[in-house]
Each structure stands twice: as structure tokens, then as C-alpha cells.
Simulated scan of single mutants.
Amino acid sequence: MSTRDRTFLRPVRDDCAARLFCFPYSGLGASMYNRWPRRVADDGADIEVCLLQPPGRENRLREPHFGTYENLAEQVSDSLEPHLDRPYGLFGHCGGALAAFATAALIAGTGLPDPTCVFVSSQVAPHLGPYGRYLSMTESALTAELEGLTRVMGGEPQPDIIALGLRVMRTDLDANRAYRLDEPVVLPGDLRVIGWRDDHEIRPEQMTGWAAYAAPGRFHEVVLPGTHHEFLTAPTALRREFAAGLAHSGKA
């Protein structure tokens, strides 16, 4: 398999009406979406779920970390180019939302087809960050968080795997700390901001700054039931947001 192909955890298929490219959560790789369907077919949608694998983790562990979200956006956009032949969206949660936004912002200046919709979950707007308790945690606290997250995903923490995850988490958080815009950048497509009612990491009301990143009529916000990690199960309400964003672009 080529280096370029390794950007995707699995091959991108052609038998779909739209694609959703998903960035992983800080400290994790694309396999974190193992409970997501390979396809979103809610409300008549036909969306392939494409899992992006940044370097420096899982099957790309030996590759150097991307360093900054801007660098990751450049790498990802090169790999995305052959697959932008139909409507597509970018999704990210928490730190992954910043990676998704950075990629959309980069694509906007390249002449490539822009995302039909960017979906950001549980993250403050880039001109208001960096924000989050993870950014100031000690190593022991981050270790405990990774162990808890492993259990949330249905696994049992193994010391060697946690140690690897901690290394990835530290470098991912460095990228998060380094990413801040002086002022909002308006994206050309739709922007859907997804908050979670019982999320104690990023409260839905902390995400209102994203409104400045969308043109009139292209900003949509929703608060879904669940906690910070509810997205890991791909709940029906979230899948419906994907269907609405990719099927009804540009409609307020």
C-alpha cells in the first residue's frame, strides 16, 4: 500500500452519493470509529464514512507526527483530491474538529471542490482557543483519561498501549495549543456545529463563536443528547445531522 493510501484506514469506495471524511480525536487513531457504520443511510442519505488516519499512530506509528493542523491539512488535502468528485463533508470532534476546519480552510484556497458541509463537534471557534482542560493536564492525569477513554470504547487498558497513546496525545495537544486564528475565516460551504447536552468538557454555549465562520444562511447549530463521548456510538441524531448537511446544503 502506498503512503498516500495510508491516509485512509480502509479503501475509499465509489458506490456512494456522498462521502464523510472523519478525523480522529486527540490521542487516538481512526480505529476509534469502530462502532460507526461504514455507511450513513438515514433519511434517504447514501454517505460513505471515510476514516482518516493521521501519521504517528496505529498503522502509521513509525511515521513522524504531523506537528501542526496546518501541516496535517496539507497532507490530507493531497490525499483527498482524487475523492472529491461528489458532495462531501468533513467531521471532527474536539481536537479533531480543528483539524477538519483547518483542512476546509486550506481547501478553500486551492481550487479543489469545497466541502459541502463541515461538521464540528465539541470545540470552541479557532479565534477563541486554545481551550480545554486536557491542555493543562499532568502526564498522570492524561494517562487516567486515556484509560477511561479506552473503557468507553469497550476495551481494557494495556500499559504498553496506553504509553503509546500518551505519546500521541502529547503531540496532538501540542498541535492544539499552537492553533489559534486572529479572526474568523468564512467557509464557502455549510457549517454545522454540534454540541452535546451533558458535555462537561465543551458546553454548547461555548461554541457560538463558530457562527462567524459561515456565510448567511449556511450556519446551523444543534444540541444533541449525550456526553462528551456520545459521538463514539454514532447515535441516530448525529447521523441525521450528517444526512441533513450533505443532502440539503445551503438551506437554512
Rank of each mutant, 00 (worst) to 15 (best):
P184I: 05
P184L: 08
V186N: 05
L187H: 05
L187C: 03
L187Y: 01
L187I: 13
L187P: 02
P188E: 11
P188V: 13
G189N: 04
G189A: 11
G189Q: 07
G189T: 15
D190K: 04
D190F: 03
D190L: 02
D190Q: 11
L191T: 00
L191Q: 04
R192F: 02
V193D: 09
V193S: 09
V193R: 09
V193T: 07
I194C: 06
I194H: 02
G195I: 07
G195F: 03
G195S: 05
W196T: 05
W196M: 02
R197I: 02
R197F: 02
R197D: 13
D198V: 07
D199P: 04
H200W: 10
H200I: 14
I202A: 06
R203N: 10
R203S: 13
R203K: 15
P204N: 08
P204M: 11
E205W: 11
M207S: 04
M207N: 08
T208Y: 08
T208S: 15
T208M: 11
T208K: 15
G209W: 00
W210C: 12
A211I: 12
A211Y: 00
A211Q: 15
A212D: 12
A212W: 01
Y213R: 14
Y213D: 09
Y213M: 12
Y213N: 12
A214E: 08
A215R: 15
A215W: 06
A215K: 15
G217V: 05
G217C: 10
F219L: 15
F219E: 14
F219N: 13
F219I: 14
F219P: 10
H220N: 14
V223N: 07
L224W: 04
L224S: 05
L224G: 01
P225S: 08
P225L: 08
G226D: 01
H229R: 05
E230V: 13
F231L: 01
T233C: 02
T233Q: 10
A234Q: 03
A234D: 08
A234Y: 03
P235F: 05
P235M: 07
T236A: 12
A237K: 07
A237Y: 03
A237S: 11
L238D: 02
L238P: 00
L238I: 08
L238W: 00
R239A: 06
R239P: 01
